Computed example of a mutant assay.
Amino acid sequence: MSETLTRLPPLPIQPAGVPWPTVDWPVGDAPAALKKTRFAELMQDAFAARSTPRLGETHALVIVQGGRIVHEQYGEGFGPEQTYPSWSKAKSITHALVGIATGDGRLDVMAPAVAPEWRGAGDPRGAITLDQLLRMSSGLAWVEEYLPDRPSDVIAMLFGDGKADVAGFAASAPLAQPPGAQWYYSSGTTNIVSRALARAIGAKGAAFEAFMRERLFAPIGMASPVPKFDDAGTFIGSSFCFATARDFARFGTLYLRGGVWDGRRILPEGWVDYARTPTFQQAGAAETEGRYGAHWWLDLGGPGSFSANGYDGQYTVCVPDLDMVLVRHGATPLDKKDDLKRWIGEVVDCFRAI
């Protein structure tokens, strides 16, 4: 891992004289180098109508550069006070919470994850580590399918037989591959992580939410988040944490600043680098799905960028070389997903000097 870490681009520090957005976001002008004509065309792609041919619905766009909001725009009927669904962006929030517990000495991500379903003598699942879960490499059988007319473990977990105990449902899956042998994106793995974290800190339900607010949300000024829990008291960290676009931008800024906020270390040193260190992916996986780190995706905003990606077009993209965070929310059909990814890359490129 350390050999890979040396190749990671440096993370930018907060510019001198720019206040941290713990209370209010500072606002600035777009840079002189912005490709204004192309940027305006891309905004038309997103906001010309409630639903556009290229992207479907775009509800919110916040672009932060140099610690200041340089562009903010909302679709008809949406605004800065509204909370937006995270969907799988919640996985990256789960990553942050695991980091906090790791920094406290309560978790070791390289150790086997604690799951009662795997305690039987000789159960090979007992060797699965938190690192393998965070890197979507547990080997557990899973079908991550979002169309309701097809077999889907994620739909069953969130809305069907597994909804009362999402972690128990996911952890009951058999092994399809040896742990660590193959990358496969699975929302179930995150909820196993979420329950393991809850057990490590001795809190679930309301007590776990208090931990989220005290250790992560409140220190960086995130006042809006609404996390969701199942009947067993497990944070549904795979999918459900609503927040304003500006608060998602605060979360992205925390990662862009290496886990430090206004002089206070929130995430342990090296935790952000851990998130953006590439995971082994078998041939074809990265080309089809995109490169992956540890509960963060890679390269959406260009080489060296990393992002929290969610179903239906929810994105928080950190771009170190531009000192940028881009947040987009909307309702983009699956058949337009690749168009939206290209659009995000094109928007980011508008800020790059020719």
Rank of each mutant, 00 (worst) to 15 (best):
D339C: 06
A206Y: 09
G270H: 04
V347H: 03
P31T: 12
G188N: 11
K89G: 09
K337Q: 14
S194Y: 07
D299R: 02
A141I: 00
S92Y: 05
L175W: 01
L133F: 15
Q44M: 08
L326C: 02
G168S: 10
G126P: 02
K91G: 01
G310I: 06
R257M: 09
F208S: 03
W343N: 00
R199L: 15
Q281C: 04
A33V: 15
L300S: 04
V143R: 14
A249H: 02
I266R: 00
A207S: 15
I128S: 04
A127G: 09
M212G: 02
M222F: 09
D108S: 14
D24R: 15
T129K: 02
A171V: 07
E289D: 13
A353T: 15
E346G: 00
A203L: 12
I266A: 02
E81V: 08
A232R: 12
L11I: 07
A96C: 12
W183R: 01
A285W: 10
H295G: 00
P112G: 10
P179W: 12
S86Y: 05
G75N: 05
G122Q: 06
H329L: 14
Y84N: 01
S138Y: 11
G263F: 05
G202H: 04
T277A: 08
T102G: 02
G67A: 02
M1C: 06
A198D: 10
L11S: 06
L130Q: 08
T234S: 09
D262G: 00
V325I: 14
V27N: 03
L256V: 08
Q14F: 04
T94L: 13
R257T: 04
R250N: 07
G301Y: 05
V226T: 13
K163E: 09
P116C: 00
D312W: 12
L107S: 03
P278R: 11
T4P: 01
I128L: 11
A16P: 05
A331Y: 15
D335K: 05
T244H: 06
P178D: 15
L298N: 01
G180E: 07
P80S: 14
G17W: 13
A196Q: 10
P26R: 13
I192C: 08
V64K: 01
L42W: 03
I69M: 09
D231N: 13
G160W: 06
Q182S: 13
E269W: 01
F251P: 00
Q14I: 09
D131H: 15
A101C: 06
P333V: 13
Y311S: 10
K91E: 10
G28I: 10
T6D: 13
R342W: 07
A101W: 03
S307P: 01
R291M: 13
L42M: 01
A127R: 15
G202C: 05
S307G: 03
T253F: 05
P15R: 05
A121R: 10
W296V: 10
G237P: 02
A141D: 14
A121G: 00
L133Y: 10
T102I: 06
A127L: 13
S187Q: 09
G290W: 04
G120P: 04
D321R: 15
W142Q: 05
R54N: 03
L267I: 07
T288F: 14
F78R: 11
Y146L: 05
A171S: 11
V327F: 06
D29M: 12
G120M: 13
K91C: 08
